[in-house]
Each structure stands twice: as C-alpha cells, then as structure tokens.
C-alpha cells in the first residue's frame, strides 16, 4: 500500500511537471512568435511588459481571464461553450504518448520518462488529432455567424484531407521500427540512426501535413483574416478564445515533438539529458514554422486541397510501396 501511495505521488509530480512545462512553453511560444515575427517584419514586437516584453504572456493570460465571456444570441449554447475545451483537451492529451527521456531512478525504482507507453501510440495520436476537428467544426457551426460557419467547414475539410497524408506518411516509419509504440520508434532510431536519413520524402510530407494540421500560415484558411475576419473563433472572447489559443500552441509543440520522435531521433542526443534535447528539437521545429509564417503567403482554398489530395497522398502511397521493398531486401 505504501509503495502504491508513493507511486501515486510520483505520478502526480511527473504529470504536474509535464503539464507545467507544456503550458509554460505554449505561453512563451506566443511571445517567441510575436517577437521573431516582428523582427522578420522589421518591427520590435512586444517590448512594454517587462524587459524584452518577457511578461507579455502573463499579462495576456490575466487579461483573458478577466474579460467577459460572451455568447452570441442564437448560438447553440452548450456546443458553443464546449467546443474550445475540445480543442485544448485533444491537443494536451496528444502529448501523453510522447517519450521525453529514458528512465530516472528515484527511491530505487525506475521512473519511465513517458506518461503512457501504450502499444498503439501512433493510432492514439491519429484518433485525437481527428477528434480535434470536432472542436473547430462545432465551434464554427454553433456560433451562428456566417464567417464562423465558413471557417468551421473549411477547417473540417482541410483537417480531414491532411489527416490522410499525415497518416500515410508515417507508414514507412512504422515499417522501419516494426511497432506503433512511440517509445519503440525512438528506440529503433537509437540503433539505426534518425529516420530522416532513411525517409526524407516521408519527412517532407509529414512536415507539410503537420503545418496544415496546426492551421497556420500558409495553411490558415479556416481563420483567414482578410476573408473571414477570424474564422471559426470569430464569436469567442475571454478565456474560451484563450483555450483555442492554448490548443493551437500546444498543438504546434506536440507536432514538433512528433517530428522529433518520428524523424529526428526523439530525445537522443549527445551531452545533454533527454528532455532538454527533445525541447531543443521542439523549439527548432516551432521556430521553423514561425519562419514559414513570416515568409510564405496564404494559399488559395483549391490550391490547399489540391496539394493534399493530388500531390501528398499519391506520393505517400508510392513511398509506402518502395519502402516496403527496401525493408524486405
């Protein structure tokens, strides 16, 4: 019984640490994005709250917490209130299967540095990223605003299109590792070397599909400002808007972590401990996404769908067949 209580305590501490780091990095990713994007556009970015504007995320979250939470008149109240939570929940839950280190020994027992090493980890991630579509589609529909409805429909169509490319591009990774478990995939890369050497095409497909999944420029059609105002979160205010925001930035982090786990060797790296390496890789991927936002124009809707269906999916299918032959040789 005592070991059980100690285990519960350790688990609680571990989960609190993981969630704290996730949310902290999400908040400061917003700051990094605003600062870096501003520099790309020859501006200063936030520089009033604290030195270098470092207190800006805290100021923003306090402001969001104290703002009025408005619900439009004819909105579908319950769906409207729950949709942002769905987005934030699915983004946060996706991190549960990402390994962020080996093991640490506390009180003579090994603590694995992963929350849950389920043997269908990859399918779990696909399931959750598909569920995230509901938050956007329902949020857009429930708002009773035409802009929000258009944003929600576009978001749903875009996400399910890129979901396919995302899934199919990872089939070669599963073949190379022989397992769905993310821990095993990282373990296989420790032996064979990062999968980006074996699967550069799959890496490119996954990176493009991941950028589209996170709905950022050049793929931010669901919230295209100059066509739809703010798209699916048009009518949201206060912390519910904040939850969409948290969801987006946690999603960026999780996708960065997934790119690291599937192609860049996960938490393995020289000199530094595992979690630090994973964090460095996540930040590099996030910085790349911000850079992309500063450089590329937004695609047109039909171009966006055409890239997904006419380029990425056929390429991913061919890649699967070719990789299968190579694995068997």
């Amino acid at each position: 019984m005592l070991t059980y209580a100690a285990g519960l305590l350790m688990l609680t501490v571990k989960l609190a640490l993981v969630l704290g780091v996730l949310l902290f990095v999400a908040a400061y990713l917003v700051w990094v994005e605003r600062k870096f994007l501003a520099r790309l556009q020859v501006r200063y970015g936030p520089n009033r709250a604290g030195i270098f504007g470092l207190l800006q995320p805290i100021a923003d979250s306090l402001k969001m917490l104290t703002k009025e939470d408005t619900v439009p008149e004819d909105a579908d109240r319950i769906v409207f209130l729950l949709a942002p939570a769905v987005v934030a929940l699915t983004a946060l839950l996706m991190f549960a299967v990402v390994p962020f280190g080996g093991t640490v020994t506390v009180w003579g027992r090994e603590i694995p540095m992963v929350i849950s090493d389920i043997n269908v980890g990859l399918l779990y991630i696909f399931a959750l990223s598909s569920l995230g579509v509901y938050g956007i589609a329902l949020g857009g529909w429930a708002s009773n605003s035409k802009f929000a409805l258009l944003g929600g429909i576009r978001g749903a169509a875009q996400l399910i299109s890129y979901e396919l490319a995302l899934g199919l591009s990872l089939v070669p990774v599963v073949m190379l590792a022989g397992s769905f478990s993310l821990v095993d995939i990282v373990g296989a890369q420790a032996v064979k070397g990062p999968f980006i050497y074996y699967q550069p095409l799959a890496f490119i497909i996954f990176a493009i599909a991941a950028a589209a999944e996170s709905m950022r420029i050049p793929f931010d059609l669901p919230e295209a400002e100059n066509e739809l105002g703010a798209g699916f979160h048009m009518e949201y205010s206060g912390m519910r808007f904040g939850l969409f925001f948290i969801g987006e930035y946690v999603h960026v982090q999780v996708l960065g972590a997934l790119i690291a786990v599937f192609f860049l060797g996960g938490w393995h790296g020289p000199f530094l401990p595992g979690p630090v390496w994973l964090l460095i890789k996540i930040l590099l991927v996030s910085l790349f996404m911000i850079w992309m936002r500063g450089t590329l124009p937004r695609l047109r809707y039909d171009q966006l769908m055409a890239i997904g269906w006419k380029v990425l999916i056929p390429l991913a299918l061919v890649n699967i067949v070719v990789t299968g032959a190579f694995v068997l040789i």
Binding site: Y4, G7, V18, L89, L92, L93, A96, S116, I118, M239
Partner: peptide, 25 residues
C-alpha cells in the same frame, strides 16, 4: 500500477488535463 507507463497513467493524465481546463473556465 502508478509506476508503470500504462493505461492508469494515461487516465490520470486525462483527469489532470480535464481539471486544468475546467479550472481555467
């Protein structure tokens, strides 16, 4: 077992996430 990275840990994490979102709202 809370020591294993199994289904229990997954549910505990899910509960934490739910609590955080609920508290924020």
């Amino acid at each position: 077992s809370p020591w294993e990275p199994g289904i229990f840990a997954l549910f505990a994490y899910g509960a934490w996430v739910l609590v955080i979102v609920a508290v924020l709202l």
